[in-house]
Each structure stands twice: as C-alpha cells, then as structure tokens.
C-alpha cells in the first residue's frame, strides 16, 4: 500500500466529509434554533440536485446550475417552513418525525411524477474536469478538490455568520431563549424562516455538487440524511463546530474503512474471507464509531444538552 494511495483516500474522505458538513450544518442549525427534527432535509438535497440538472441541461452553464440549486432549495425550504413546519415547533418530536416523513413521501413521489424514475446526469464542466498534480506527485481530480474548497469556504462563512454578524447573534440568542429574543423586538418567525431557508439552501448546494459525481435520482437524499444524523449525533446537536468535526470523522472513517479494513483482515485471514468480513465491517464502521462516542459522551462531542 503506497503513500500516494493513502493520500488519495484521505482526500476522498475529506471531500465526502465536507459535503456531509453542508447537510449536517443545516440540520444542526435548524435543531439548535427551532428545536425541530427535520427528516425532509434529504428531500431539499434532492431538490437542489434536480434543479441543477434541469438548469444545466437547459443553459449548459454549471455556475448557473449551482445558483439554481441554492435558490430552488432555499425557496422550497422557505415555503415548506411557512406552510407546514411552522405548526410543528411546539409539537412533540413524534409529530415532527411524522410530518417531515410525510413531506419526504410528497417530495420524492412528486419529483418522480415530474422527472420520471430514470436518473438524470449532471456533467462536470470542462474547466473543472481532469486531474491536477499535487505536491508529492499525487494526481487528483480537480473537481473533488474544488468540492473540498467549497466545503471549507462554506464552513468559514458559517462561522463568520454565526460569530460575527447581527443575524448570527440573533440565531445564537434564539437557541438560548426564544421568548427573550422575541421580547427584544426580533421578528422571530422571520428569523426561523430565514434559518430554515439557509439550511435548505446548503443542502441543495450539496445535492448539486455531489450530483455531478453521482447520478441525480429520486431517493438520493435519504442515505445522506441518515449519515448527516450520525454526524450531528457525534458532534453534538446544535453545534456547528461539532458538525464540522463530526462530518470529517465520518467521512474519513467511511472512506478509509472501506479501503483499509479488508487489507487489515488479510494480514491474518485468507483473502476471500478477509474481503468479506472487512467490507461488512467497513459498512458498519461509522455506526460503531457513533456508538463509541455515545458511550463516552451521550450528548455528542460538543453538545451542550441531551
């Protein structure tokens, strides 16, 4: 096993991790500020990907497609918040789970209705395709490198937004005491719509960016959604920093586990059985990681409350 391969896999893990972060950041913000568990976050990811594929197909411009993905998902998020989600803030978690599960059904089948069951393809633009050579002679796809860059930029932007702006102060204050924030004259329902749309937009952006390396299809959001849940359980619900560290941990564990666990088992097992056991274990690795974190810290690495 060469160093080049290891470096490549670490980069793949990072790329997967930052994309998970885009999903997890929205989820954790929405939970932290509004106390809402949103299963339909994966649907917004899907909405973004479909919007991007449709716009890219019509105009041929990848940048326009990304803008469309952000806008479509944010708009869908804002509408859903105003029509349905708003009634759920005071409701028990069970109702939130059900209503957002119902939204998944509506979004998924509605998309299938409009676009059909066949996957769409979103092409990587010419100016981002092809490999680049990194220091140390590692050839790595430029597009994946760009994804890492976008993810890190969004993380920095979110940090700036929550720590340095007026909106960020309101968001953080809303997490602590919503009545007090409302009493101080902040329009709390507008703030909620805004936060929800922000989270939705990030999910949509992630959907479009990942859609270009995978296919764009109905149901693409749910596996990512569940991984994002694992991320925020590990990081601690409500913490953006936790979501970032959790996302990188999950991304790296999943990618490296899939490559190295079978190799590890080959050291003391016959190759066939080693591949079998290793890949079975690798598919469970992040959940085992999650259990370990939970045993150690039931409210996550950076979680304030359980």
């Amino acid at each position: 096993m060469s160093l080049v391969l290891i470096a490549e896999q670490v980069l793949n893990g990072l790329q997967f991790g930052v994309m998970l972060f885009l999903m997890a950041a929205g989820l954790t913000l929405i939970f932290g500020v509004m106390g809402l568990i949103n299963l339909a976050h994966g649907s917004l990811y899907m909405v973004g990907a479909f919007a991007a594929a449709a716009v890219a197909g019509a105009t041929g411009s990848f940048l326009l497609a990304l803008v469309a993905a952000l806008a479509a998902a944010a708009l869908a998020g804002a509408i859903v918040e105003m029509v349905v989600i708003r009634r759920l803030y005071a409701a028990p978690h069970l109702d939130q789970v059900l209503a957002t599960f119902a939204l998944i059904l509506i979004f998924s089948e509605g998309t299938r209705w409009v676009f059909g069951s066949f996957p769409l393809y979103l092409d990587i633009p010419d100016w981002l395709s092809g490999p680049v050579t990194l220091p140390g002679g590692i050839a790595y796809p430029l597009y994946r490198l760009a994804l890492i860059g976008v993810g890190l930029a969004v993380a920095a932007g979110l940090w700036w937004l929550t720590a340095r702006t007026r909106l960020g102060i309101q968001i953080r204050a809303g997490e602590n005491d919503r009545e007090m924030v409302a009493a101080l004259g902040v329009d709390i329902s507008r703030l909620y719509t805004l936060v929800f749309a922000l989270g939705a937009g990030l999910a949509g952006l992630a959907g479009a960016l990942v859609g270009a390396i995978q296919s764009v299809q109905v149901g693409m959001g749910e596996p990512v959604l569940i991984l994002a849940f694992v991320v925020i359980v590990i990081g601690g619900i409500g913490s953006i920093k936790g979501a970032f560290i959790g996302a990188l941990l999950v991304g790296l564990t999943d990618t490296l586990g899939g490559i190295f666990l079978p190799e590890l088992f080959k050291l003391f097992m016959e190759p066939g059985a080693a591949t079998q056991t290793g890949s079975a274990l690798a598919s469970m690795a992040i959940y085992i990681l999650m259990s370990l974190v939970l045993v150690w810290r039931p409210s996550g690495l950076f979680g304030a409350r359980a």
């Binding site: 978690h93 569940i226 849940f229 359980v233 469970m284 999650m290």
Partner: peptide, 26 residues
C-alpha cells in the same frame, strides 16, 4: 443513554447499520 431527538436519530442509525450489513453479507 440518550433521549428525545438523539434517541430518534440513533435508532435510525442502528437501522441503517443492519441494512448495510445485510447488503454486504453475500
């Protein structure tokens, strides 16, 4: 060990763990 939303997400995650295990168990 947890409650509320954590419990929902964790049970969901364990479900996925078994799902992927079953898929890879040829």
């Amino acid at each position: 060990r947890t409650s509320g939303v954590y419990f929902i997400m964790i049970t969901l995650a364990f479900g996925q763990m078994f799902y992927y295990f079953a898929i890879s168990w040829s």
